[in-house]
Design a protein around this nucleic acid. Sequence first.
DNA 1: GTACGTGCAAAATGTTTGCATCATT
DNA 2: AATGATGCAAACATTTTGCACGTAC
Lengths: 143, 143
Amino acid sequence: MSCTRELFQRHHLRCTKQRMAIYEALRDSHSHPTAEALFNMVKPNTDRLSLATVYNTLDALCEAGLVRKLPTTNGCCRFDADTSHHLHVRCLESGEIMDVPEELGSQLVDRLPAEVLAQIEKAMNVKIDRVQVQIMARTDTTR
Amino acid sequence: MSCTRELFQRHHLRCTKQRMAIYEALRDSHSHPTAEALFNMVKPNTDRLSLATVYNTLDALCEAGLVRKLPTTNGCCRFDADTSHHLHVRCLESGEIMDVPEELGSQLVDRLPAEVLAQIEKAMNVKIDRVQVQIMARTDTTR
DNA sequence: GTACGTGCAAAATGTTTGCATCATT
DNA sequence: AATGATGCAAACATTTTGCACGTAC
């Protein structure tokens, strides 16, 4: 669908076929891919594409707020085109990142008390951008 | 202090001077240093030390559960010798990681409802190891 | 037409590995 | 004495950069 074009224009991003393909692949993916995984997903359907462009594009999209870089512990970045507040489960074995279903996640996030966040801002002299909750877990082998 | 030796022995870790120096520097640091920062902190007081040893040691300490690797978004790992439950503020500008004062952090973490966590375990078929709350923030320039 | 995006290859950065030597147990 | 840790340098993986060319506006 072509509302990507309008979305890009609203954010003053040039609508190149590479950028659109990268963004749409990330948006439609549920796997929070790495830059390289994304490159491999998009490359077959795009006649000219280099990995450097994937990095440049992801950078531009982050800058524009359309994409988020997710924190990882293995030195290799993962990306998410869903910038709404939602929780992640990080598999300690594989490094894979999965979304927690909206209705469960919001039950956790909604109970974070705003006044405590305000106190943290005051105590640490920062402006909170957002709170990211990550659940570290292993695949359950007991069931 | 030398309880590091006993701590290591309890975890079946060899007590080399490099390992002890690295661990103690990390434990006494409040800056959640990168491997290289740690190397620079420890090197001057240790006659033989290489960066590879810092990586190997941090790996062994993580394995033993004495140290934790923190998630970051810039592909460069940071470490923490405080493995108790506590919150981090990540500076979006510098990548720096700061601890949230214990009494404030526990006000957030203690309100995470256990039954929701149990539901997440069931729904996603995982065993939760721990919940990590990261606050993304900027240095407050309005004050 | 101009400004910006792209591909490619090279460089920079962060981390891991192989191997001979050395230290701890 | 045996096992495992160390230093060093080389390999590796991920990300960034410089530059000539191409494309969107």
